[in-house]
Nucleic acid binder design. Sequence first.
DNA 1: TATTAATTGCAATCTTGTTGCATAAAGTAT
DNA 2: ATACTTTATGCAACAAGATTGCAATTAATA
Lengths: 138, 138
Amino acid sequence: MSVKTIKNILKNHKLRITDCRIDVMNQFLNSKSALSQSDLEGEFDQYDRVTLYRTLNSFLESGIIHKIPNNQGTATYGLCHDTCEPHNHHHNHIHFKCNNCGQIECFDDREVPMVSIPTGYQIESVNLIVDGTCANCA
Amino acid sequence: MSVKTIKNILKNHKLRITDCRIDVMNQFLNSKSALSQSDLEGEFDQYDRVTLYRTLNSFLESGIIHKIPNNQGTATYGLCHDTCEPHNHHHNHIHFKCNNCGQIECFDDREVPMVSIPTGYQIESVNLIVDGTCANCA
DNA sequence: TATTAATTGCAATCTTGTTGCATAAAGTAT
DNA sequence: ATACTTTATGCAACAAGATTGCAATTAATA
């Protein structure tokens, strides 16, 4: 993915273009799996961890990435599907976590099945977390 | 739920019977929603937080409770369904998190729908996290 | 009741998440 | 290109959560 393309993505989300954002964006685009802040800290020691923290936050708020629920302590983030624009943000995601290599992948192109919830409950978003063994580790 | 019943649950899971475990177990049984460690710390200041931490761990390992994936920092735990015995442990859970009151409920009695995952991936467990407004807050 | 094995409390550490503030850099208008 | 305004960055500092080691205590068992 070219720097120009990345800059356009940032512009489209009304974010200032900075080195850190370009590098992090590039990392997400080149990564098959979801990333945590500590992943980024390991990759980019030229940036302060607070800067990476705020970079992730700005991406989150502008709808470029989404937070993936997990039962470890650390938050992981995945790129949003193309259709996830700030004003057309869909919140249904399928994620796969490999219990062997630990990687988390997003299957944004797959449909989240219908859910049965007791009456009186209003659904805003649905997250499906599948645990198991990924294709690489199987 | 009587103390005797709780003691039996602990015995069935090969856990020693201690005051802390009885109190925590009772709390789970009486709580409609999932609990976090800090919930327990607020409830039981007579126990050290490390003790509560290890109590939760022992319940986790013996399959009495399960960890609920979420995208906040703090882990929350829910009681496992009756069928969740150590050697017959099913891992499919539906959870509802209310964005208003923050409570997390487990719908263990509801079927987790079929999931479509790319070939080569092996599924171990499926967690469904539904966000929205609960019946109380709606 | 004595013995053994597991649990508890305390201290301490580590990681993650988070904020305030001064400095530096990006966008914008001149 | 230059000055100006706004936003981002780095540093320090702190809060909360998770985690371990160890000595003292308690539960299960003989």
